[in-house]
Amino acid sequence: MNEYDKFSLDGRPIYFERGQSILEAALAAGVYIPNLCHHPEFKPHGSCKLCTVKVNGRFGSACTIKAMPGQEVASDTPELNGNRRVLLQMLFVEGNHFCPGCEKSGNCKLQALAYDIEMLTPHYRHFYPVREIDATHPDVLLDFNRCIMCELCVRASRDVDGKSVFALAGRGTASHVVVNSPSGKLGDTDFALTDKAASVCPVGAILSKRVGFAVPIGERQYDVDPISAQASARQAEEA
């Protein structure tokens, strides 16, 4: 392990490669830290704040803080998980998240995290915002009611697809994703179902048309194993 360094995560040693963030190193080691706006193929973003941990006693995002030798990182603690529950509740009341009618249910990261952190109620007063649905594209449906502003589609379309189909506009709770076309409609862009951006949405805001509840309930991604357990299972498979 000469070329490796290590830090401590909830008392467990985590070996990392120089340049990795705490989150990357933890996930690579099969230890789950909750996250929503993170994607292994993209630069760290740090907006959802689900991965907030304590590093040597100071709060910070595990996805943006570089792993350093000797760090003492706390993640799976009642305090941090309590705050994560609040962040999830904020996301649930901010949008219109009605799981029973959502095609993404069972495969949704937001929902899976809420299960894992045992969020039983959105708790805060619902905003019930009025948001748009864009069905102009032949293959893809946009339902902004479920958007959580993680900008994964923005980043995927810009950095991978080279199309910049999406952008985050507005400020504060008026923030919203817009489509880059004079009409503002997806149908007037060169967006394609094969785009990276079509597959990165962690929630049900970008959906493939004509695919409805294809996987039976009970067999969907997070029906059996919780999202946290899947991270360690995946790592075990790869090892």
């Binding site: 740090g46 907006s47 959802c48 704040k49 689900l50 609040v86 962040l87 904020m90 996301l91 009341v93 901010e94 805060y124 007063r125 905003f127 959580i148 502003m149 985050l168 507005g170 400020r171 504060g172 709770t173 008026a174 923030s175």
Partner: peptide, 18 residues
């Protein structure tokens, strides 16, 4: 603060409004 939150991160965007 609600008016001026940039909206980037969850706790500030939603928290200031709540």
């Amino acid at each position: 603060f609600q008016h001026e939150s940039c909206g980037f991160c969850t706790p500030c965007r939603v928290g200031t409004r709540i």
